[in-house]
Simulated assay, not measured.
Amino acid sequence: MIRTFAAAAINGTMVVHDPAVGTNHLPPQPLPSGRIALDEHQVAAWPEAQPGQLTPKAPLSMCWSPIVRCNLACPHCLDDKSVRESSAEERQQLAGHITASGVLGVDLSGGEPLLLRDLPDLAQAIRAGERAVVSCTTNGWHLARRAQELAPALDAIRVSLDGATAATHDTWRGTDSHSRAIDGTQAAVAAGLRVQFQMVLMRSTYHEAQALLDLASQLGVGGVTFLQLLPIGEGQAIADDQMLTDEQARAAVYSLTVPDGVRVRLRTRGSADGFTVLRADGYAWRNTGGATSITAFLPVNGPEDLHLPTAASAS
């Protein structure tokens, strides 16, 4: 499948960012910088750029959470709901700062980003710089009605599923959330969006990892990212009961049978360390302490403010 990636030379090393999976790859030959169409199977075969391997000024990829509000109340949510939300004008300014910072990949998250009417405008504003690729992480509740509108503005969409079945998923996210996410996924695939499922690995959910891979294959979803639970935000309250060790997570994921055409990634807490997050109040944060905490750095008033002191460790 040919889709859009972001390529750039970082201190003489060519890097390609995958907006669906969130990985960075090292191509064997020079490529034009900027947004570039590549075969996803070819990109997946290239070695991954590991954290600390490069020393970019700006993070290679980042998460921007322009909204705090959400229609669900998940007990493993990472978001700090005490921060204020920027105005529509401030969001446009932040989008401009992100574009000018040199970042390759931006994931729009929240809160629930599909509650923002100006979400397509924000994505297009970032892509206008012809450098970055843009994805969006959603709980899928409103995706069916917005998929056609979002398809021209996004390079990928990530749908959060905490299990392959409604019985498991709805336990964590609420009644009907599984069916709404599946309906949204089908609409997004039909609209031509590259979809990636994201599942938080927990002691009560990881037994459905194989079934989720099989479901992804049935629905035409391109891949599944398994995320280690981070003891951040509301997730702190369930960490002792639900967190797997990285070793347990690797054992669970590496034993799976991966269907043809489905890309699998495990994001351990170690690989999430140093990742940059721009919160709804316009402050840039960074995962620290092995991604067990979030540290505030400074307000983003210009593109240089995203060049945080530890940017070399960004994933």
Rank of each mutant, 00 (worst) to 15 (best):
M1V: 11
I2R: 15
F5I: 10
A9V: 14
I10H: 05
H17M: 13
T23F: 11
N24P: 00
P27N: 07
Q29G: 08
Q29N: 08
P30R: 11
P30E: 13
L31K: 01
E40C: 14
H41T: 12
V43L: 08
P47G: 05
P47Q: 08
E48L: 14
Q50F: 10
P51F: 10
G52E: 05
G52P: 03
Q53H: 13
Q53S: 15
K57T: 11
L60R: 00
L60E: 02
C63L: 15
W64D: 02
C70N: 01
L78E: 10
D79G: 07
K81M: 14
S82K: 08
R84T: 10
E89F: 07
Q93Y: 05
L94W: 04
L94K: 00
G96D: 04
T99E: 13
T99F: 00
V103W: 00
S109W: 00
G111C: 05
E112V: 02
E112A: 02
E112Y: 05
L114A: 08
R117M: 12
L119C: 00
A125H: 06
I126M: 04
I126W: 01
I126S: 02
S135T: 04
T137A: 15
T138L: 03
N139D: 14
W141S: 11
A147G: 07
E149L: 15
L150I: 07
L150V: 04
L150Y: 05
V159N: 04
G163P: 01
G163C: 07
G163M: 08
G163S: 07
A166C: 02
T168E: 06
D170F: 10
R173P: 09
R173A: 14
G174V: 09
S177Y: 11
S179Q: 13
S179G: 09
S179M: 06
A181Q: 05
G184C: 12
T185P: 11
T185F: 02
A188L: 10
G192N: 10
G192A: 15
G192R: 04
R194S: 06
R194G: 01
V195Q: 01
F197P: 02
F197R: 07
V200P: 02
V200F: 01
L201M: 12
M202G: 08
S204T: 08
L212Q: 09
D214P: 04
L215D: 06
A216V: 02
G222L: 08
G223N: 06
T225V: 15
T225S: 15
L227F: 08
L229H: 07
L230D: 00
E234V: 06
Q236N: 10
A249D: 01
A249I: 07
Y254M: 12
S255P: 00
D260N: 13
D260P: 06
G261W: 05
R263D: 08
R263T: 11
T268A: 06
T268S: 15
G270C: 09
S271G: 03
A272G: 05
D273I: 08
D273R: 02
G274Y: 00
F275Q: 12
T276R: 09
L278Q: 02
L278I: 07
D281Y: 01
Y283E: 12
Y283S: 10
A284S: 12
W285R: 11
W285P: 00
N287M: 15
S293E: 14
I294R: 14
I294D: 14
I294T: 12
I294G: 10
F297K: 10
V300T: 02
G302F: 06
P303Y: 09
E304F: 09
D305S: 12
L308I: 12
L308F: 05
P309D: 10
T310P: 03
A312Y: 13
A312L: 12
S313P: 01
S315F: 14
